[in-house]
Computed example of a mutant assay.
Amino acid sequence: MALALCLLLDRRSDRLVRELWTRLEAAGIPTLLSHTHGRHVPHLSYAVLLAWDAPAVRAAVAAFPDGGPVEIAVQGSVVFPRRRVALAGAASADLATRHERVVDALRATGATVHRHYEPGHWTPHVSLSTGVAGAALSAVVDAASDRLPLTLRCDRAALIDTSDGSSWPLPGVP
């Protein structure tokens, strides 16, 4: 179980990712549509917390200033360990600065940030599949490549409990 601070996609970007998920599912490739609790939404995680004090984290994220929507340029896909495949986003200077500010604020609450979400180790991404069989990796990469390049727009943010998909919207986009 983890708690994630996620940027959520606007309607157009959400639809594009869901269409890709649906296409992959139709080809027999599991995506976030069918993963675990089935309540996943297209998102870009700023930080994943392994341990946290819920009231402290909620207070910290409520205090973030609204930086407004952020756009993510996607030029390719990435395969992470355990055959997790995602759309790879570019880390613009603005996005990297926002990310570092968010992680610093969350760490200041005493939260433990997953090492892959630490500044300097974070790869902005939007997950497609979480455990693709080796033989199907090329199909996922091909399906993603057919949609690239694209720009995804994040216009909302939320804390999301990864165990059940519960969500707490933030008042703005950190």
Rank of each mutant, 00 (worst) to 15 (best):
L137A: 11
G68C: 10
D104P: 03
G110T: 09
S163W: 11
G172F: 05
L49V: 10
A133V: 03
E19I: 02
A26P: 04
L137G: 02
R15I: 03
A4C: 13
V78R: 05
D53T: 05
G28M: 01
T130F: 01
A136V: 08
R101P: 00
T162I: 00
Q75S: 15
G67Q: 11
A90Q: 09
R84L: 10
S145E: 15
V85N: 00
A88W: 02
A144L: 04
A158D: 05
A56Q: 02
A136S: 15
L50A: 11
P42F: 00
A59I: 06
W52Y: 14
G131N: 13
V102T: 04
R12H: 14
A158S: 12
T109G: 10
F64C: 12
D10C: 10
S167P: 01
E71W: 00
T162Q: 02
R18P: 06
V78G: 01
L5Y: 10
W168D: 07
T97K: 10
A73D: 12
A59V: 08
R11K: 12
A144N: 03
L20K: 09
S92I: 08
A73R: 08
G28Q: 13
L16E: 12
T130L: 15
R153C: 12
L128Q: 11
V173C: 09
A91L: 12
H43T: 04
L3K: 06
R12P: 01
T36K: 13
H43Q: 09
R98C: 03
A4K: 03
A54H: 09
D94E: 14
H40Q: 03
A90I: 13
G172P: 06
L148P: 01
R23S: 11
L148Y: 06
P174A: 12
S167R: 09
I160N: 03
V103F: 12
T112V: 15
G110D: 07
A47V: 08
A135E: 15
E71N: 08
T97V: 02
L150H: 11
G28H: 14
A133P: 09
L106A: 10
H35Y: 15
R98D: 01
S163M: 05
L87I: 06
T109Q: 11
L32F: 08
A105D: 03
H40L: 06
H40S: 14
G110F: 05
S92G: 10
G68M: 07
A139T: 11
R58H: 14
G110K: 05
D164Y: 00
T130P: 01
G28R: 12
V85G: 01
R39T: 02
D142I: 09
R58V: 06
E71T: 14
A105C: 06
D155E: 07
L33Y: 11
L8A: 07
V74E: 02
V140P: 07
V48R: 02
V173D: 08
V17S: 09
R107Y: 10
T130C: 09
S145N: 15
R107M: 14
T123V: 14
P149Y: 13
A96I: 06
V70K: 04
L87R: 00
V126G: 01
S92F: 08
H125G: 08
L9Y: 04
H116K: 13
P119L: 04
L32P: 01
R12T: 14
A133K: 12
T109D: 12
E71R: 13
A86C: 13
